[in-house]
């Protein structure tokens, strides 16, 4: 157990938490989705730090899956939800 890495991971937590503010503010759905992207990169960084800190290599695989899922979520959102809603209700910023 390395305290140094855990403290580094703790420093990154506010970076994610502050990102929540953008979800509240919007204004478009894509702005909110960008927070998910932030979760992706920051989450991966935290998992990598914890993996070294706790000496648990399994967390590396979890980080890998996390990165994949964040990417898929964003791409699916843009291709299906945001793009599709354009045709149905034109001019609505949400």
């Amino acid at each position: 157990m390395s305290w140094m890495h855990t403290i580094f991971a703790l420093i990154l937590l506010p970076a994610i938490a502050t990102g929540m503010f953008r979800i509240l503010r919007g204004p478009t759905a894509a702005d909110r989705m960008m927070t998910a992207q932030l979760f992706g990169t920051c989450g991966v960084a935290i998992l990598l730090l914890l993996s070294t800190g706790m000496g648990n290599p399994v967390l590396l695989d979890i980080a890998l899956v996390f990165a994949l899922l964040a990417a898929l979520a964003t791409i699916t959102f843009v291709r299906r939800t945001w793009h599709g809603s354009n045709k149905r209700n034109h001019g609505n910023p949400l």
Partner: peptide, 25 residues
């Protein structure tokens, strides 16, 4: 090698989704 693979994956994914979001906007 695994760390580099993760970084590469995040790089590709975030630059692609960044372009997609900008294009849709």
């Amino acid at each position: 090698a695994k760390l580099l693979l993760i970084w590469l994956l995040v790089l590709v994914a975030s630059s692609a989704s960044c372009h997609l979001i900008a294009r849709s906007a």
